[in-house]
Simulated assay, not measured.
Amino acid sequence: MMKKRNNVNWMHYSKMGLALGALTVVLAACGGNAAQPSPTTVETTTPPATTEQPTTDSDKLTAEDIPTALLDGKYKEVYDQFSDDFKKQISEKDFITSAETSIKQVKTFNEAADMEINDADVRSWVSDSGDLGLNVTMDKQGTILGLQAKALTPAPATDKVTTKNEYAFPFKGDWFVFWGGNNALINYHYEYESQRYAYDFIQRKDGHSYSGDPLKNESYYAFGQPLYAPADGKVVSVLSNIADNEPVGKMNPEVPAGNEVVIAHANGEYSVIGHMKKGSALVKVGDMVKTGDQLGLVGNSGNSSEAHLHYQVSDGADLFKSKAIQIKWKDGSEPVQGETVTAK
C-alpha cells in the first residue's frame, strides 16, 4: 500500500491567458460536478534581501532541470526563477520548507509528459514510488510560472481494463491532447471514477491554441470544427441549446458537459461527446449512426474555459452516474498529454 501524500501547490498564478493558465486550472474540471481540490494556502513573507549577483540566462535552470535541482537541494536556485507574482504567493523560506518535506523520500523522478502550448513549456514527472507527481510551467525566458507537487493514487485494477469495442477519433485532422493519461497529473479527470479515462482535445497551430483576440470563441482553432461518431450506435441523449461561453474564460458549471451527444454502442458502452457548439447538433434521440457520421461542431459550452472536445466512453448513459472505461482506439495508440493525434 502506498503512503498517501498531501498535495503541495506552490501556486500556479500565471498570466498566459486562457491559453494555458485557465486550461491548467479550470479545463481540468470540464464536464465534472465533483468538488475540485483547491490550492494549499500558504502564508507569504518578504524574502530576505540579498546582495548576490542576478542570475544570467546561461545560469538558468531549464524545465527539464527542475526535478534534479530539487532532489539535489537547489531550492534557492529554483526559487530565484519564480515569477514576481509567484514570489508574492510564497516566501523563499516557506517554499524550501514545503519542498524538503514533500520530496524527502523521493529518489528519482521519471518523465510523464511534456507539452509546449501558448508560449509556455509544461513538464510533468512521477516519482519512483509512483505516489507523487511533479509539474512545472515555464515561459520562454525561463521564468517559472507554476510548480506543483501532487499526491497520486493509481487505480491499477481499472487501468488494466479497456473498452470491448474499438473507437475512431471523433474528429479529423491533427488534435492535441491537453488532458489524457493514467494519472491525475497529466489527466485531471483521473481522480474521478466517472471521468477517469476522459480526454480533452484542443487544436494547436505553431504552438498556440488560438490566434487573435483570446476572449472570442472564434479565435480558437478548435471552435466550430466538425465532430463525428466514433463508432456505430444509437443516439440516446442530445442537448444543443446551451450558449457557448463568451468572453472566453466565463464558464457555466450549472450544465457541466454543456451541449452533448451520447451514443449507445454494443457491449453496454456509451460515447459522451461534450462542450459542443450551441445549435450544432445534427442528430436526435433515436437516430442510428455509423462511424464517421457527423454529429455537430466543437464548442465552448458548459464548464469549459476554452473551445475543446471532452470525449470519453462510459458504462452508462449518465456521465455522472457511470464509470469511465479506458478507450481502445482503432489505430492502437495510447495518447497522453502533450501528444498530437491524427485522424483521417
Rank of each mutant, 00 (worst) to 15 (best):
S280D: 12
T291C: 14
V235I: 04
A231L: 14
N241I: 09
V255P: 04
N217F: 11
M288E: 15
G286W: 13
H265G: 00
A257L: 10
A264R: 05
S240L: 09
A264G: 00
H265P: 03
S219T: 07
E260H: 04
A243Y: 15
M276V: 03
E254K: 12
D244K: 12
E218S: 13
M276F: 06
V261L: 06
A281T: 05
I273A: 08
N300Q: 11
L295G: 00
S280W: 05
M251H: 07
V283N: 01
A243R: 15
N300V: 08
E260C: 07
N259T: 04
G292I: 02
S209A: 13
P256T: 03
P247E: 13
I263T: 00
I202G: 10
K277P: 03
N241A: 08
V235S: 02
G302S: 03
G302F: 00
G212V: 08
I242G: 08
H208D: 06
L282G: 01
R204M: 14
V289W: 00
G207I: 15
S237Q: 09
D287M: 09
K290Q: 14
H208V: 08
K290E: 15
H275R: 07
V255Y: 07
I273F: 02
V262N: 03
Q294H: 10
K216W: 08
L215I: 02
V238K: 01
D200V: 10
V248Y: 10
G296I: 00
K234A: 00
K278C: 11
D287F: 08
D213W: 09
A307L: 07
S280H: 05
E260Y: 04
Y210C: 12
Q225G: 04
E260S: 11
G268W: 03
S304L: 05
V285F: 04
N267Y: 12
G224Y: 08
R204Y: 11
L227M: 11
V255D: 05
P214Q: 03
N303R: 04
P230F: 11
D244E: 13
D200Q: 14
E269S: 03
Y220R: 06
V262K: 02
G302W: 00
P247R: 14
K205P: 05
N259L: 01
T291Q: 13
P253K: 11
P226C: 03
P247H: 12
L239F: 08
I242R: 08
S271F: 07
Y228G: 02
V261K: 00
D200T: 14
S305C: 15
H308I: 10
P226L: 00
E254I: 14
K234D: 03
F223T: 04
E254S: 15
K205R: 15
N300R: 09
Q225A: 02
V285N: 03
Y220F: 14
G212D: 09
L239C: 02
A243T: 07
L282R: 04
Q225Y: 01
M276I: 06
V272L: 14
V283A: 01
A243H: 10
H208N: 13
A222F: 10
L297K: 01
V298D: 12
G274Q: 00
A281C: 08
P230C: 14
N259H: 00
L227I: 11
N303E: 07
H275N: 06
Y228M: 08
V235W: 00
A222Y: 03
S301Y: 01
F201G: 09
F223E: 05
Y220M: 12
A229E: 06
G296S: 05
G249P: 06
D206I: 13
K277H: 06
Y228N: 05
S211P: 11
N259V: 00
V262S: 01
